[in-house]
């Protein structure tokens, strides 16, 4: 993307970076095509919120809504060349749309918005493992998870641990992690799905994506949850105990982060964690500006989808 387009779009979108970006980027932005911009859009815990909250909702009046999110995503796609749209799980359960249609419309809308991939949350098991399997044909995007063993279930062979995307020459490896199901989901729903300890798996896969697959960016789509008072594994702990992961896109705890949490990881590099609340009220946007030497800068926005003025 040319610099001119970048600046123009910054001004247009009220991005607030037009002047700001000149500081960190002045050294390279002047050269043509000296960086590649990768735009990551993300949601989590949408919980079947197809329609916006009603205007009389005590907490989220008029917020969210899939048709509005679709417009926003379309707008960003028209401005950016390299967009990845990701969901960190718990797509299902929360409105009568799920009770009546079992997630069919959710998957169809996500397909329409061109989601690139999603991971599986605990509530995605709410109609059982059969419920997920039945809905998969309505999704034109893959589901990824690396720490649920589905080998003895109907989902065997249908969920991949990771996916690799190549955008403008940048190789991006994305893998999925899910929360421990025992105590959260009834056994009769998840059946023979086995939860595997995520830290070791995350390190193994990130290492593989880095060295064997030669990925430039490694993203973890996590439904582990941002943090807990207990010693339960969380995104914060995962970031500290792993290396090679650039970004953790989280879910489960419905945490709304205004900016990425930056964690010093096992190899003393930065791992960022982001999460955008729930119910499709916000769309997160993280832009990587990747230099020739593969180092990068990042900008982040937590975009609120709302139908009335503040």
């Amino acid at each position: 993307m040319s610099r001119r387009k970048f600046i123009k779009q910054s001004l247009l979108s009220g991005f607030g970076l037009a002047s700001l970006n000149l500081i960190p980027f002045s050294s390279f932005a002047a050269k043509k095509k000296s960086y590649t911009k990768i735009t990551i859009l993300h949601t989590n815990d949408v919980h079947s919120h197809i329609e916006p909250f009603p205007d009389n909702d005590p907490k989220y009046p008029g917020m969210g809504g899939a048709a509005r999110r679709a417009v926003l995503i379309k707008q960003i796609r028209s401005e950016e060349e390299n967009v990845l749209l990701l969901d960190a799980g718990d797509i299902f359960q929360g409105t009568p749309y799920f009770n009546m249609y079992g997630g069919e419309l959710d998957f169809k809308l996500m397909s329409l918005m061109q989601y690139d991939c999603a991971t599986i949350g605990n509530h995605d098991f709410d109609n059982g493992i059969d419920g997920i399997t039945k809905m998969l044909p309505h999704a034109n995007f893959p589901f990824i998870n690396a720490n649920y063993d589905f080998n003895d279930t109907i989902l065997k062979g249908k969920i991949e641990p990771y996916k690799i995307f190549i955008k403008d020459g940048v190789k991006i490896g994305i893998f999925g992690l899910g929360v421990e199901l025992d105590g959260l989901v009834e056994k009769k729903l998840y059946k023979e799905t086995k939860y595997l300890e995520p830290v070791g798996i995350a390190n193994k896969i990130a290492e593989k994506l880095k060295t064997k697959e030669q990925c430039d960016l490694i993203i973890c789509l996590s439904h582990l949850g941002y943090q807990y008072k207990s010693d339960k594994i969380s995104d914060l702990k995962l970031a500290k105990k792993t290396k090679n992961i650039d970004l953790i896109i989280g879910g489960h705890t419905h945490t709304s982060l205004e900016k990425p949490t930056k964690i010093r990881n096992l190899s003393h590099k930065n791992t960022l964690i982001i999460q955008v609340g729930w119910a499709g009220i916000n769309l997160g946007r993280l832009d990587f500006y990747i230099l020739k030497d593969k180092n990068y800068s990042v900008s982040y926005q937590n975009l609120r989808i709302q139908n009335k003025s503040f």
């Binding site: 979108s13 009220g14 991005f15 607030g16 970076l17 700001l20 970006n21 500081i23 960190p24 509005r68 417009v71 926003l72 205004e258 900016k259 990425p260 930056k262 960022l272 769309l283 800068s297 990042v298 900008s299 982040y300 926005q301 937590n302 975009l303 609120r304 989808i305 709302q306 139908n307 009335k308 003025s309 503040f310």
Partner: peptide, 12 residues
């Protein structure tokens, strides 16, 4: 009508 708020914008 869409109104969305750029709550946060930063460069790392």
């Amino acid at each position: 009508n869409i109104k969305y708020l750029f709550v946060f914008s930063l460069v790392f």
